[in-house]
């Protein structure tokens, strides 16, 4: 039996909003799938990541050596996308393991770039403050990476 929805004159009801929320979550997962697929493929080939569009380097420069080296911003962006809704267990366990591995390696890499005096980022830090800060804020949020590293090490 279908229920009658109470809608206002613009045709938006709380039920509509709930549907939109489900659609939003579904679409977010699609984006994550694309990023994950790209990252896994890149890891296997140890080469520039494959393209989901015609542009050969469209999703490159994260976790893999591209023509410009490993990109801080690209890595941070990919990690940010993959870490959304981590509690949402929608992935098969195999892919979930891949995702966790990619997240761990990416965060470790970003962490080293931030702390290691020998890292490329540290050596050029003064020249790239804004760019680096934005990237690190995206890639490592204080309530995620720190807590997880502490938990895993503890």
């Amino acid at each position: 039996m279908s229920t009658t929805r109470v809608k206002n004159r613009f045709g938006v009801s709380p039920e509509d909003i709930e549907e939109k929320q489900r659609a939003a979550k579904r679409t977010r997962r699609l984006i994550q799938d694309h990023v994950l697929d790209d990252a896994v493929t890149a890891d296997e080939s140890s080469h520039v990541s494959k393209s989901i569009v015609r542009d050969e380097f469209a999703w490159g420069q994260y976790l893999n050596e591209g023509i410009h080296g490993i990109g801080t911003y690209g890595t941070a962006a990919a990690l940010q996308i993959l870490s959304l809704g981590e509690d949402d267990r929608y992935l098969p366990s195999e892919l979930a393991d891949d995702r966790d591995e990619i997240l761990h390696r990416g965060r470790t890499w970003l962490d080293r770039q931030w702390c290691d005096p020998a890292s490329h980022t540290q050596q050029r830090f003064d020249e790239a403050v804004v760019y680096r800060c934005v990237a690190f804020c995206l890639g490592i949020s204080p309530d995620e990476s720190g807590a997880k590293r502490t938990n895993s090490s503890g």
């Binding site: 939109k20 929320q21 489900r22 939003a24 979550k25 679409t27 977010r28 984006i31 994550q32 694309h34 990023v35 569009v53 542009d55 380097f57 469209a58 999703w59 490159g60 420069q61 994260y62 591209g66 410009h68 990109g71 911003y73 690209g74 962006a77 990919a78 940010q80 996308i81 959304l84 809704g85 995206l138």
Partner: peptide, 22 residues
């Protein structure tokens, strides 16, 4: 195009997730 295209996807995914959790 180019590596920065992932930036677009970051903002979209963040926005969708935040809306889904609202």
């Amino acid at each position: 195009r180019g590596p920065a295209s992932i930036g677009d996807h970051t903002w979209i995914a963040e926005c969708l997730q935040c809306y889904a959790e609202y």
